[in-house]
Amino acid sequence: MAATRLKLNGLGLYAIAYLGFLYLPVAVLPVFSFNDSQYVAFPLKGFTLRWYDELADSYGLLNALGNSIRVALCVSVLSTVLGVFAAKAVTRYRMHGRGGLIGFIMVPLVIPEIILGISLLMTFSLSDVRLSLVTVGIGHLLLCVPFSMLVLISRMEGFDRSMEEAARDLGENAWGTFWRVTFPIIFPGVVASLLLTFTISFDEFVLAFFLSGSDATLPLHIWSQLRFPERLPSVLSLGAIIVVASTIVVFVAEFVRRRGVQLAPPRA
């Protein structure tokens, strides 16, 4: 298939301006993370790896990063597991009040996080639960399950339930049917849900602000460091690493998704 030549008309210029607006701020991160100066200002001074060195020694930052990764991992796995079950229940069983139930679960999507944060904080303190990463995780879970459900419900609805019936018919029990048919077919959705919820939890600020107690997550730590100008460059270097890492993850996920599209059964 021949690619159509990109013409530089109005629409093309708009597209370039848009991409510039999207990526220029992101490009600032790596550029200044190698800049041999404490201050984020032009002209650039010289090349250095100093900030990356400093990053390796900055205990608070690494600790916060570790916290965020741990919370995000737990939250993404848990919310995806819950999402799979919920999506299966919603799409595969005849239920009364199905629409109402879905709406009810989706509510956290539209409640402002600050309200959610305050109400969770009140709930935890009323029930004498000590604030920690666990409470942050619970808050994030509340936020992430609806996203997992959205992704997985559309994946579940996209494939014919006669696949699962065929597996039962060929002698598999419910458990075997899930692992040998349902899971492989919804796998791209599972990956999408894991990535999405990991990202949501990883950079979530408001709920973490209310619920973290003394264990800072990465966004909280960065926020607290912005008061000290000399710490900023190593925050930049961390930012650059995260940008590169997430780019790789997105590419991998896209690859998995494409494979999934290829494997998807033809729609009736």
Partner: peptide, 20 residues
């Protein structure tokens, strides 16, 4: 008896070939 314990097998209208 559930389908997986019956001595019958089915060919579905849309064939339900496992895509993966």
């Amino acid at each position: 008896l559930p389908p997986n314990h019956r001595p019958v097998n089915m060919v579905f209208q849309n064939y339900a070939i496992f895509p993966h």
